[in-house]
């Protein structure tokens, strides 16, 4: 057991070191939050803020926080494909640790990486003056961790169905980008036409973001204007989806790895 734990920590640690050594990636991960919160959130707040009845910067900030954690962990898991093409996966897969250990270690590692970005986003929000309290930010730590794991499980399922780096580069944006709008990273989705409502409800990121916002806005006057469901329902959906994604994803991934 301790062997597997050590392996999980090592796998996770490797991801963190890789991230810190990878300067271009470091830079890119901070550019998007700056664009989204600073530029998009800032301009929407100035032009539409008074009409929607709640602070748009805060709304976009919570959205980007959830989206970054979800997406970054998912795409980190998908980097196992890159490893496979660099053949580092082989080194991992001939080692005598359980296949579940490998997946869990990878999810932990990518969650760590996502949290490094989380810190960057919060600092940036502080600098440009997005209003939030200390308690609101502190509760975002455990909530963020849950979202990371959820994104990781989503990544495992996507990974299991991809054949190589090329298809990963092509397919991942197609399944992640629409979710920005369906889950409402920067657009309110309280009211939606039926077809969008359907797609919004089946997109996993919707529940990740609503969970983050339901906790963040808890007890504030804006709660009803922003939150769609409630924390309990969101958490239940996340728990069910997480279990299905991780079990099915790991099973398919292992099967496809060896049965060629």
């Amino acid at each position: 057991m301790s062997r597997e734990l050590n392996a999980i920590v090592m796998l996770a640690y490797r991801d963190l070191i890789r991230f810190l050594n990878d300067r271009p990636r470091l830079l890119i991960t901070f550019i998007f939050p700056v664009l989204f919160i600073g530029v998009l959130g800032g301009s929407l707040q100035k032009n539409l803020g008074s009409n929607v009845g709640f602070n748009f910067m805060t709304f976009v900030f919570t959205g980007v926080l959830g989206q970054t954690l979800f997406q970054s962990t998912a795409s980190g898991i998908i980097s196992l494909i890159e490893d496979r093409e660099n053949n580092f996966t082989q080194e991992i897969f001939v080692s005598p640790v359980s296949r579940y250990t490998i997946i869990i270690g990878k999810i932990f590692g990518e969650s760590l990486v996502s949290f490094a970005q989380w810190i960057g986003i919060v600092l940036f929000a502080l600098v440009i003056g997005v209003p939030f309290t200390l308690v609101q930010i502190l509760v975002m730590i455990p909530v963020g961790l849950i979202i990371c794991f959820f994104g990781g499980a989503f990544g495992v399922l996507v990974l299991a169905n991809l054949s190589g780096q090329r298809s990963a580069n092509q397919i991942f944006p197609i399944i992640i980008f629409p979710q920005y709008f369906l889950a409402g990273v920067f657009n309110p989705i309280k009211e939606l036409p039926p077809i969008l409502l359907f797609f919004s409800r089946i997109s996993p990121m919707t529940y990740a973001l609503d969970f983050a916002r339901s906790i963040f806005y808890l007890g504030t006057p804006d709660y009803d204007k922003v939150v769609i469901f409630n924390p309990v329902l969101d958490f239940a959906v996340i728990a069910i989806m997480f279990t299905v994604f991780i079990v099915l994803g790991t099973y398919l991934f292992m099967k496809n790895e060896r049965n060629r």
């Binding site: 490797r14 070191i17 890789r18 050594n21 990878d22 490893d83 660099n86 053949n87 580092f88 082989q90 080194e91």
Partner: peptide, 10 residues
């Protein structure tokens, strides 16, 4: 392995 299986970022 036939192709080097080292992690180049470490």
């Amino acid at each position: 392995f036939q192709n080097p299986s080292l992690d180049r970022n470490l």
